[in-house]
């Protein structure tokens, strides 16, 4: 087995054992995986050379959609997930049709503008959205079976883990597929892409909708775990956090999205208390440091480390061969 795969494999096993062995981490890691799924959406766009400062929009749309549905008789976790993903996907098509006409600065900022519009709608139309207080999302049934809080949280944890693995696997496959490869060429040469007979906008739109759906799934999971949705779900700080985690984990890396969000949540829950007023500042400083000094992020650091061990093993193996 390749050295690089050892840690991710161990991590999955460890994550699967958390509820029985380390229940105190369960809620925290549920949130980390929900965010990780959403961060994958930002990661995906980074692969096409684009950064969105407004993807919390889809996170928020799905979460609010789930909260509305939860207030109806259809309050089942599976339906909430489906509806959230669908809602985020539709919003992704509508917003995407507009933003895929732009790249770079405009792409990033227009996404930010859309999310700020949605955020101010959430704040202003309080008679529908609950304003700054948000909406409660009462514990839904799961496959129409009512559950108590304890088992529900365990189940939500495993659902998040499963979705993280399944969606992560899907995104990796997508990126390696012909459509996914065409999508990534938006980063390097749109002239050639056009002269291959492919519309850069349409190919970018496909990835954009996928990224919106991923943010949507993350948003519903987070809402289901917290039991409440607020405008902060769609605020720029949430978008910035997603971008931060994507870069922290390793810009463009799917595994990095999860490594980044788990590292982020752990540090946040234990260290944020010491820097409660300066949390954004700490993040900003870290972001600068990563961009300037470790552009590969956590995944890059690990890969360099694993390659060094791999190279050392190969060296000692060849020495042994030479010795015999």
């Amino acid at each position: 087995m390749s050295v690089r795969l050892i840690l991710p494999a161990l991590a999955i096993v460890a994550l699967a054992l958390v509820p029985p062995l380390a229940p105190f981490l369960q809620v925290l890691l549920t949130l980390a995986m929900a965010k990780g799924i959403a961060v994958m959406g930002v990661t995906l766009l980074l692969r096409a050379g684009q950064v969105s400062f407004g993807h919390a929009l889809f996170f928020g749309i799905a979460a609010y959609g789930a909260a509305f549905l939860a207030a109806s008789p259809l309050d089942d976790l599976l339906l909430l997930l489906l509806a959230g993903a669908l809602g985020a996907g539709i919003a992704g098509v509508l917003v995407g049709l507009f933003v895929v006409r732009y790249r770079g600065i405009f792409f990033g900022m227009l996404n930010l503008a859309f999310s700020m519009i949605f955020w101010s709608i959430l704040e202003k139309f309080y008679y529908v959205t609950g304003g700054a207080d948000g909406l409660r999302l009462p514990r839904p049934s799961v496959a129409f079976i009512e559950m108590d809080r304890g088992p529900y949280e365990v189940l939500l944890y495993y659902a998040s883990l499963l979705l993280a693995i399944a969606l992560g696997w899907f995104v990796v496959r997508f990126l390696a597929s012909p459509v996914g490869q065409l999508f990534q060429t938006v980063k390097t040469n749109e002239t050639r892409l056009e002269y291959l007979g492919v519309s850069a906008r349409r190919t970018l739109l496909k990835g954009y909708v996928l990224s919106a759906v991923l943010c949507g799934v993350g948003g519903v999971l987070m809402a289901a775990a917290q039991g409440i949705v607020t405008p902060s779900y769609a605020y720029w700080i949430r978008s910035g956090e997603m971008v931060f985690i994507a870069v922290l984990g390793g810009a463009g890396s799917v595994v990095g999205a999860f490594a980044g969000s788990i590292a982020y949540e752990l540090v946040r829950s234990y260290a944020a208390a010491f820097a409660a007023d300066a949390w954004q500042m700490v993040l900003g400083g870290f972001l600068l440091a990563i961009i300037l000094f470790a552009p590969g992020g956590l995944v890059g650091i690990y890969a360099a480390f694993a390659d060094r061990i791999g190279a050392r093993r190969a060296k000692s193996a060849s020495k042994k061969e030479a010795g015999t």
Binding site: L46, F53, A278, W279, G284, G285, L292
Partner: peptide, 27 residues
Amino acid sequence: RIYHRPEVLQLLVTFAVFMILEDVQRL
């Protein structure tokens, strides 16, 4: 340091400064 780097990266850098300055105000 970043004039010759990709546009995405330049955006990320000024965004990081934005995050920092927002908290500087609060502090």
